[in-house]
Amino acid sequence: MKIPVPSPQTSVPYTQLPIILKLQNVTLAYKNALAVDGVSLGLVAGDVLGLLGPSGCGKTTLLRIIAGFELPQTGTVEIAGELVTGNGCLIPPEQRHVGMLFQDYALFPHLTVAENIGFGLRRMQKSERRQRVAELLSLVRLPTLENRYPHELSGGQQQRVALARALAPQPQILLLDEPLSNLDLQVRLKLREEVLAILKQQGISAIFVTHDQQEALAIADQVAVMHNGKLEQIGTPETIYTQPASRFVAEFVTQANFLPAQLQRNYWVTEIGCFALKTEISQHKGDLMIREEDIILQPASDGAMKIATRFFLGHEYRYSLYTPSGKKLYAITPASIALPIGTQVNVSLKETANLKVFESQ
């Protein structure tokens, strides 16, 4: 069953778009330890979902449940409207029309590039298989390497072959388990762009597992943040970054600062200033989230704080400094603003700063 993918010009509310994958209350425990805890989510046809979270949060386990390699204790999984897991149903992996791209490539060392790509196409006629392999070699930009073996390829080339092999049977959903983490930075950035372009060109729905915040925000139509087996938040990259639903999301995705804040009348009072903010927490004490890029550093001989460290990141500097009470703050400034370590500064916030108060921990 193929689900039509809306064109970019189609104006349809996101919640009304066709769902290719649906998980409902999926839970899996190993020896009384919850690996996946009541996860429910949906994947729109043609979209890329970035599954983001730290190591051990349940990302790969959730991917294996979708693929059919793991059986959850509770919950259901539907693919293209068909129940594949749950309520007594378990469709085997090879019948789910799902492709998988692994972190370690998992290529057969004794097979050539062409043989690796065509491995899942053995039921095709030889002429059709050769044509399909040639199409995929061209798609992943390896048109002349069909007779090489995996050990004769670079890491980036091996991952391209693995991608072509996963795409060969024309899966409805492609599952990518941190596929670029073994590559160096320049290759990873280039291949990330190429993989996304191929997925969009082919209209393939995908789930991309990563622990890299920038990677998830860059490639995904929707980002799902996981923590301790739970789904903390799901939304567009812009929503996840600007409107974190929990303190964990704010810390993990944006690396935000947090300062103790006290509600006095209509203002949240901190040691760096007072801020009029609406908040959903019921307490009069909380922690104010301040993003690093929203902090302005103003050198002053009588400044209340002092630059402790400075890291040059190419197009920007990242500073650390301590508040009078000893709280550590990080601030990011353009590379044109270079403040030596030890410089005394006053701190203010940009007018556009997106602040939020969370319950104290």
Rank of each mutant, 00 (worst) to 15 (best):
A33Y: 15
L34Y: 10
L34C: 09
A35R: 01
V36T: 08
D37L: 06
G38H: 09
G38F: 04
V39D: 08
V39C: 12
L41E: 09
G42R: 15
G42W: 11
L43H: 06
L43M: 08
L43D: 05
V44E: 10
V44P: 04
A45Y: 05
A45W: 06
A45C: 14
D47M: 14
V48D: 08
G50R: 01
L52W: 04
L52N: 10
L52T: 05
L52M: 09
P54G: 04
P54W: 07
G56S: 09
C57E: 05
T60L: 09
T61G: 13
L62C: 13
L63M: 09
I65P: 13
I65M: 12
I65Q: 03
I65A: 02
I66G: 01
I66C: 02
A67D: 05
A67N: 10
G68R: 02
G68S: 05
F69V: 07
F69I: 03
E70Y: 02
E70K: 04
P72V: 12
P72H: 03
P72A: 05
P72K: 05
Q73Y: 06
Q73M: 07
T74F: 13
G75I: 14
T76G: 07
T76V: 11
T76C: 06
V77I: 06
E78H: 15
E78Q: 15
E82A: 13
E82H: 11
E82M: 08
L83S: 11
L83N: 07
V84P: 00
V84G: 00
G86F: 06
G86T: 03
C89E: 13
L90I: 14
L90N: 15
I91S: 00
I91D: 05
I91T: 11
P93N: 07
P93R: 00
P93W: 00
E94K: 00
R96Q: 03
V98F: 03
V98L: 14
V98D: 05
G99N: 08
G99D: 09
G99P: 02
M100I: 12
L101N: 10
L101V: 14
F102R: 02
F102I: 01
F102Q: 04
Q103K: 03
D104N: 15
D104G: 10
Y105E: 05
Y105F: 10
A106D: 01
P109G: 03
H110D: 07
H110V: 11
H110F: 13
L111H: 12
T112G: 00
T112C: 02
T112F: 10
V113T: 01
V113Q: 01
V113F: 03
A114Q: 08
E115I: 04
E115Q: 13
E115W: 03
N116D: 07
I117A: 02
F119Q: 07
G120I: 01
G120D: 06
G120H: 02
G120M: 06
R122F: 11
R123N: 15
M124H: 13
M124T: 07
M124L: 15
Q125F: 10
Q125E: 12
